[in-house]
Amino acid sequence: MNVIEVTELSKVYASGLGRGGIVALDGVSFSVEQGQIVGLLGPNGAGKTTLFKILLNITKPTGGRARLSGLPASDPLSRQRVGYLPENHRFPDHQTGIGLMELTARLYGVESSLFEDQLEPLLELVGMEKWGETKLRKYSKGMLQRIGLAQALVSDPEILLLDEPTDGVDPVGKIEIREALLKIRNQGKSIILNSHLLSEVESVADRVVILSKGKIVKSGSMAELTSQKSHIIIEAEIGHNIVEIPPRLGKVLSVSTKNMIVEVVDDSNLNPILELLFLKKIPIRSVKPMRISLEQSFLNTITEQEQTG
């Protein structure tokens, strides 16, 4: 089931007195399945935060539709099972940590007894059990971020929208948050994670959507994004054999006695290349696509997109 469905969403912000405006989103369509962690990536100003705000009806779209749990975003009920950690949040800072959680629970209509049961585990989850009674104005940035995550979880959400959740959090906290996210996902909940820390996204996300200048420039499973299909690693007992590959099939990028990396022109050319090895009676151990880091994949996508305009 799709818990989030976005169709042809666009948003143009009016730009003061000038004509036209800032295009923040330009025909964005995608969906999120239940139980998935989706990483939302993109350069600054790509429209990631705008997308979140439209999903929550904080900002009205210029065109297109957004649905959460089957309900249109304009229906308040669509937000009942959604937890949100805003970017650059400024929670009412005269509240204590627990006060903020309680206010959040009340706004979601969570029953008091349920809230009492949840409070301790949630504070523990984000490592804030000692700070619950302290006013938010005395919190450090990372602490605010942690309590922000805790308040997003108060309503036992099915969908979590997290806008840079580990911004300002120390390395240990980042690992704790990552583990918490995986735990939440394993409970069958869906998370959209908006983050500039690609290694973090790489370690938790099942799928990635890359936005740039308001458009989706790439989306797919983590495996799809980090495999570079045209580059194949062939593990084989090459020894001192010389393998020449005709240019119409592909190109040898590097070769050693144990393996070779080949750039194939087309997937269908893989078999003829392997046949060349068979003919030379070279035993083949494995054939797999070469993996690149998410970071590399992201950079490739963005530079490609900038070159094509």
């Binding site: 904080i58 308040p76 937000r79 009942q80 949100y84 805003p86 949040h89 400024r90 706004l107």
Partner: peptide, 21 residues
């Protein structure tokens, strides 16, 4: 105005209450 200020509006508006309510 404080409730609707940047950073705080996100918090209040993301809750499952209609704007009217």
């Amino acid at each position: 105005p404080t409730m609707l200020s940047p950073g705080q509006s996100d918090y209040f508006l993301s809750k499952p209450l209609s704007r009217t309510r």
